[in-house]
Design a protein around this nucleic acid. Structure first.
Length: 447
DNA sequence: GCACTGATAAACACCT
DNA sequence: AAGGTGTTTATCAGTG
């Protein structure tokens, strides 16, 4: 069992940080053990989990990594989901080298290493979803119903979501200048509606948004060359939403930075943080404003909309101004000649179609330099990944539940911090014992 | 408090 | 006529 490195300052959040120089898969056992011990040793741990936990989590031998890494993610998420929440594994895309969200058990790998399970709302805006759908199409154009289909296929969340999301898709298509309607080819019977494609003029905006969307906890980590746990602790902000979620959902989230194997492919780069495998107990459920305000003290927030800000400004304000990001973006910005004169001509794509998923085809082209992440000082806001309710994800969120009073919110936030303290105290115990020799500690505890 | 952004709802016209 | 598609407007929540 590898060493368990835990942040020393409780204010940085709750969680389990597992460090190992071995295969990142090694964290499976570490996490299982840490969690189990945490629950056993710390009654205050606000996890509405069945005890004893069915741990350790599925273990994976390093030599099995190619075949079992994905299944491990899935099994682990299944296990965590069985507790009643939406388990999200945060990992790093083997393609983009960027952190992403993994909410197995969906087997569909997406552009940023995102696996979205049936219960978790994708951390993507509709613009990004549409963009991915269209980019995934061989012809780089899709009918609305096909966009629906792509989203449903890749994000099962929407299968049970209220139908309003389709309206939102259409709304985005109509409103966003990023999307252009293709004049229907009468020779092709595609039924109702038109085909939609990406306006190359705004493509970089979408790319920028996409690159930032699923990412929120490690941009500052990536700016730091240090591989020391202290470096991580000083900037890592494990997520925590207070006890409300645990009371309602009991969900968990694991943060798995660089080096984690996903999508059946192992990360090549482990240079940034070869030692650190932070795993965070996170709640996915509702979070009050006060929670967030408290958490913001140690939770890195961010902006997932950097690139589309201008776009949206244009669109929602119906202005014609072009995004300045076309000029301020990273080096991925193509020259005008990079695009075909026909913005929707599939032949304009220089993406190698290897028959794989869209990220391999698209992101390798779009994201040639993962190091630009170091420039991302801002990070994703809660709103991107946070389900809007426990069981009613999207619709009528404004009218179903009256706002909590400030007192209630403050109590909740205070409770969160108290729980936090408990978690850290507990987990620090684990750390100390691990460092000194876990077996002996265990035996002494048993006695 | 304000501006911005994204999501959502709804109304409506048009198309198949 | 029914249902899908596309457009537009309004509103709200979250955020900086």
């Amino acid at each position: 069992m590898g060493p368990v490195m835990l942040p020393s300052k409780k204010a940085e959040g709750s969680g389990v940080t597992v460090a190992s120089r071995q295969s990142p898969l090694y964290l499976a056992g570490s996490l299982g053990e840490a969690l189990q011990e945490a629950v056993v040793l710390e009654p205050r741990l606000p996890l509405s989990l069945p005890l004893p936990l069915p741990l350790p989590l599925p273990a994976v031998r390093p030599e099995d990594e190619e075949l079992t890494s994905l299944s491990w993610l899935h099994e682990t998420a299944d296990l965590l989901n069985s507790f009643g929440g939406d388990a999200v594994l945060r990992s790093v895309s083997p393609i983009t080298q960027e952190p992403g969200w993994h909410t197995p058990p969906s087997p569909v790998p997406l552009g940023h290493g995102v696996y979205c399970g049936p219960n978790a709302k994708p951390p993507y805006s509709f613009s990004c979803l549409i963009f991915m759908a269209i980019e995934d199409a061989p012809s780089k154009r899709l009918a609305v119903k096909d966009i629906y289909g792509w989203i449903l296929e890749h994000f099962p969340y929407f299968a049970n979501a209220p139908t309003g999301w389709k309206n939102s898709v259409r709304h985005n298509l109509s409103l966003n200048k990023c999307f252009k309607k293709v004049d229907k080819d009468r020779t092709q019977n595609i039924g109702k509606g038109s085909l939609w494609c990406i306006d190359p003029e705004y493509r970089q905006n979408l790319i920028q948004a996409l690159k930032k969307t699923p990412f929120h906890a490690y941009s500052q980590v990536l700016t730091m060359p240090s591989t020391s746990p202290e470096a991580f602790q000083s900037i890592s902000s494990p997520l925590w939403s207070g006890n409300t979620f645990f009371q309602k959902n009991g969900g968990l989230l694991l943060q798995v930075p660089q080096g984690v194997i996903c999508n059946g492919a192992q990360m090549v780069s482990q240079g940034l943080f070869p030692d650190i495998r932070p795993l965070v107990i996170k709640t996915i459920g509702s979070r009050t404003t006060t929670d967030r305000s408290v958490l913001d003290n140690y939770h890195m927030t961010g902006d997932s909309n950097i690139s589309v800000n201008n776009k949206h400004k244009q669109d929602q304000n119906y202005s014609n101004a072009k995004s300045s990001l076309l000029h301020s973006g990273p080096s991925t910005s193509p020259s005008p000649g990079d695009e075909s004169s026909n913005p929707c001509d599939s032949t304009s794509s220089n993406i190698e179609d290897d028959g794989g998923d869209w990220p391999r085809k698209v992101v390798t082209e779009l994201l040639p330099d993962a190091t630009h992440l170091a420039q991302h000082k801002k990070q994703l806001h809660w709103t991107k990944a946070k389900p809007r309710g426990d069981t009613l994800p999207l619709k009528k969120r404004r009218t179903e539940k009256p706002p909590e009073s400030d007192d209630e919110e403050m109590k909740e936030a205070a409770g969160s911090l108290l729980h936090l303290a408990g978690v850290w105290a507990c987990l620090n115990n684990i750390t100390n014992r691990t460092a000194k020799g876990q077996k002996e500690q265990k035996e002494s505890l048993k006695n």
